[in-house]
């Protein structure tokens, strides 16, 4: 397949050229996904921990719901956020549609269930180990949340990376709510879709390789940090 032959050359040339347009796209991709993951973490980590600690009627339903939402198709998330942010929608007056902020919102919707569900699972396991000791120390459930989140930190790095992977790889949602506007809301994935539509498959695949490399670098860095700390702390 000639497209793939050229793709690696194209990817290399893209990176070496330091094309400012490409750099803007890369930076925006990272910025949007990092911001979305950051916001999602602020909400999902405590939420997931709370779901792990509290037993209440309907908890099972919520747990299943979050698990199911992990597989939420990005287009559906995008469409939902589009309808919310559209001028005709309930949040229309903020004028967020077709801005990077809208893309962040859409990615938060996609990432939140993943981080919540996986955090709940990790915290549940850790709490199984800690429960008696923490009860013996007389800790309330609320006060256990920060303790458990901190002590589960190495596992949670992987959880957050899963969220970041989903955010940076998805295209359906950001395409709809961002509009793939050149220089404003064009990110790696929507650029790939555009180049594919133009039939410039080597460029599309080249961009794909650049994206994959970026995600790999982020994952690699987190892995090294996590493993080193894990080995040190046992």
């Amino acid at each position: 397949m000639p497209a793939s032959d050229n793709a690696f050359h194209t990817a290399l040339a893209l990176v070496l050229s330091m094309d400012p347009a490409l750099i803007d796209i890369v930076l925006l991709s990272l910025q949007v996904s990092f911001t979305a993951v950051l916001i999602a973490c602020l909400l999902a980590l405590p939420l997931g921990a709370a779901l792990a600690l509290w037993a209440f009627p309907g908890r099972g339903v919520i747990v299943v719901l979050f698990n199911a939402l992990m597989g939420l198709p990005p287009v559906v998330a995008g469409l939902t956020v589009y309808l919310l942010l559209s001028r005709a929608g309930p949040l229309g007056e903020f004028g967020l549609l077709f801005t990077p902020s809208a893309m962040v919102v859409a990615q938060v919707v996609l990432v939140l269930p993943i981080i919540t569900a996986l955090t709940r699972q990790q915290i549940e396991e850790l709490h199984h180990e800690y429960r008696e000791q923490l009860t013996s120390l007389g800790m309330s459930k609320l006060r256990r949340i920060p303790t458990l989140l901190w002590d589960a930190r190495f596992g949670l790095i992987t959880v957050i990376l899963a969220g970041f992977g989903r955010a940076s790889a998805e295209v359906g949602a950001v395409m709809i709510v961002g509009g793939n506007i050149d220089g404003v809301t064009r990110v790696m994935t929507t650029a790939i879709v555009l180049e594919t539509a133009k039939g410039d498959l080597p460029l599309a695949l080249g961009l794909g390789i650049v994206l994959l490399t970026l995600v790999a670098v982020v994952n690699g860095a987190a892995y090294v940090v996590g493993e080193t700390a894990r080995r040190r702390l046992g």
Partner: peptide, 14 residues
């Protein structure tokens, strides 16, 4: 005031 020491000590990851 009570405390308990377990067969397998539960120590935090710190």
């Amino acid at each position: 005031r009570q405390a308990m020491v377990f067969q397998r000590p539960v120590l935090l990851r710190r």
